[in-house]
């Protein structure tokens, strides 16, 4: 263990922890933009500069290891100025299109500019020339001019997903995030979920809502057996997006695949069954619940009475909830009186 002090508070951490991790563990906030717990430090935003006694100049807290007896200062006039200037530089060439940006209201840049009181956009004339190539996934829209090149997306794509289909291209002011030749994007949307600004947005629905207008309901993905946690973003009883904002949550740590993140439109597909159907004259016709339930109960009774309970079988579902399945098997065993219950685990 290492003992150090941060802003005068004694902190004890294990060797190998960064100054930022040490500060976090002590509840001391150091502002960051590119850093994410689930990835290794990126170090691009330079917001996390701190002063360490005895060193000639500030160091970045995210990628500098804590050392024994270090005395760290996280707030000072110099540091505030540096952070403010970094933010101010991020605004160079950044379109101030917050009112029409998807990220408005939950944009890290917006929040920090506000927090640090940056009120002017320096040299507003400057615009980087970025060769905008079509983003490699049709599911994701790229707004290159909003990008602050924090490289979270690039890092997440490589480090979290093991893909590496995007990279920083070009040099200096004209750098941009572009596709890596020969590496296929799998449209998982990891980049989208880690983007701190509105540079990557999903291209599924036109309906949009500000964070305070929509509801976010955390639920479990309905596709494979991993059981990823995500948030349904709901506006006026409609899903408008699926997001992951909690990147520390088991079992998926904010990651999803193409299905979980983008394949939810079926919920409102016109093919959805909205009324019970009963076959009459060879055709399935819409009817009332009362009629459908009555007809079903009658058929079940008839067959059970004529051929015994074991002449009826039920397939429960690996797609339904535990509660659905419990009730289903209870229905078969207790009501119909047969153990002929199985489901598609085998398929």
């Amino acid at each position: 263990m290492i003992n150090l002090t941060i802003d005068g508070t004694p902190v004890q951490v294990e060797k190998g922890q960064t100054i930022l991790e040490a500060a976090n563990s002590a509840g001391i906030r150091i502002p960051t933009m590119c850093w994410m717990k689930k990835m290794r430090p990126i170090g691009s935003c330079r917001m996390c500069v701190v002063e360490v006694e005895g060193l000639g100049k500030p160091v970045s807290a995210c990628d500098t290891m804590a050392a024994a007896d270090m005395k760290v200062t996280t707030q000072s006039e110099l540091l505030h100025g540096m952070r403010r200037d970094a933010l101010s530089l991020m605004l160079v060439g950044h379109p101030l299109d917050c009112p029409v940006c998807d990220k408005g209201g939950e944009c890290v840049l917006q929040d920090m500019v506000w927090e640090f009181g940056v009120t002017e956009q320096p040299t507003p004339g400057a615009q980087p020339t970025r060769d905008i190539e079509r983003y490699i996934s049709p599911m994701i829209k790229q707004w290159a001019d909003r990008c602050v090149l924090c490289a979270r997306c690039v890092t997440a794509c490589k480090e979290v997903k093991g893909i590496g289909c995007i990279e920083i291209k070009g040099n200096g002011f004209d750098s941009y995030i572009g596709p890596v030749e020969g590496v296929d994007c799998i449209s998982c949307g990891e980049c989208l979920s880690v983007c701190p600004v509105g540079a990557l947005t999903d291209g599924i629905r036109d309906e949009k809502a500000r964070i305070w207008q929509s509801k976010r309901i955390t639920t479990t993905c309905g596709y494979c057996g991993v059981g990823c946690q995500f948030d349904l973003n709901v506006l006026n009883d409609k899903i408008i997006r699926v997001t992951t904002t909690d990147h520390d949550k088991l079992p998926n740590f904010g990651s999803l695949c193409i299905k979980g993140r983008f394949a939810w439109e079926f919920v409102d597909h016109p093919d959805r069954l909205t009324k019970p159907l009963v076959r009459r004259d060879g055709e399935l016709r819409e009817t009332t619940w009362e009629d459908a339930l009555h007809t079903a109960a009658k058929k079940i009774k008839e067959v059970r009475d004529a051929h015994g309970p074991d002449s009826i079988a039920g397939f429960a579902s690996a797609r339904c909830t535990n509660e659905d399945n419990y009730v289903f098997q209870k229905f078969f065993r207790a009501v119909i009186g047969t153990n002929n219950v199985d489901h598609c685990a085998r398929l």
Partner: peptide, 22 residues
């Protein structure tokens, strides 16, 4: 030279160098 050779990763260099150059 700096603007041309900046790797584009950090803010003070990527954008700062450009503003200084201008």
């Amino acid at each position: 030279g700096l603007s041309d050779n900046s790797c584009g990763q950090c803010i003070p260099c990527r954008i700062g160098s450009h503003v200084i150059l201008e």
